[in-house]
C-alpha cells in the first residue's frame, strides 16, 4: 500500500472504523514505516477530535416554540389538504378485501359488459313508453271526433 492509498483510507474508512481487518493491518504496517503518513494521521485525528469535542449548544430560545405554535394553530387547512383527507378516507372506506387491482378489474368488466346492456334496456323501455302514449293520445284524438292525429307524435315526445 502506497502513501496515496494509505492517506485515502486515513481520511475516510480508517478514521471512521469502516476498514476490514486486512486493510487495517496494511495501514498499520504503512504507518509504522512512513513518517509522512504518521504526521498526516496525527493532524487528521487532531481535527477530528476538535470537531467531536465541540460543546453542544443550548436549545433554541423559548420564542421559537411560541412562533411555531402561533403559525401551526393559525394555519387554515388548505383546500388541497381537505380534498386529500376526504379522498383518502373515501378510498380507505371502500377498500375491498381482495385489493384495489381486482376492484378496478371488476369495475372495467361492469363498464364494458353491463353498461351497454343497461343502456339498451333503457332505450327499449323508452320506446315502449312512447308507443303506449301514442296509443293513448291517438285514442283520445279519435274520441274527440276531429280525426286529425298529425301532431300526436310531437305531443308524445314533449311528454317524454
Amino acid at each position: 500500500m502506497n502513501c496515496q492509498q494509505t492517506q485515502d483510507l486515513l481520511l475516510t474508512d480508517f478514521l471512521d472504523q469502516q476498514t476490514n481487518p486486512e486493510q487495517q493491518l496494511q495501514v498499520h504496517q504503512h504507518l509504522k514505516d512512513c513518517s509522512v503518513c504518521r504526521e498526516q494521521w496525527a493532524s487528521i485525528t487532531a481535527v477530528d477530535a476538535t470537531l467531536k469535542n465541540v460543546p453542544s449548544p443550548d436549545g433554541p430560545s423559548p420564542y421559537v416554540w411560541e412562533r411555531i405554535a402561533d403559525k401551526v394553530q393559525a394555519r387554515p387547512a388548505s383546500w388541497l389538504d381537505v380534498v386529500q383527507e376526504n379522498l383518502a378516507g373515501l378510498i380507505e372506506g371502500f377498500k375491498p378485501a381482495w385489493g384495489y387491482g381486482s376492484f378496478v378489474g371488476a369495475m372495467l368488466v361492469v363498464l364494458v359488459v353491463v353498461l351497454p346492456l343497461v343502456v339498451q334496456q333503457q332505450h327499449q323501455a323508452a320506446t315502449a313508453d312512447r308507443e303506449y302514449l301514442l296509443q293513448l293520445v291517438y285514442a283520445d284524438d279519435k274520441n274527440a271526433g276531429d280525426g286529425d292525429v298529425s301532431d300526436s307524435g310531437f305531443v308524445v315526445d314533449h311528454l317524454l
Binding site: 485515502d8 481520511l11 475516510t12 471512521d16 493532524s43 487528521i44 487532531a46 481535527v47 477530528d48 470537531l51
Partner: peptide, 13 residues
C-alpha cells in the same frame, strides 16, 4: 468526507 477533511487540514495549517 474525504474532501471535507482535506480542506479542513489545509485550512487548519
Amino acid at each position: 468526507l474525504k474532501r471535507a477533511r482535506e480542506a479542513l487540514l489545509t485550512a487548519r495549517t
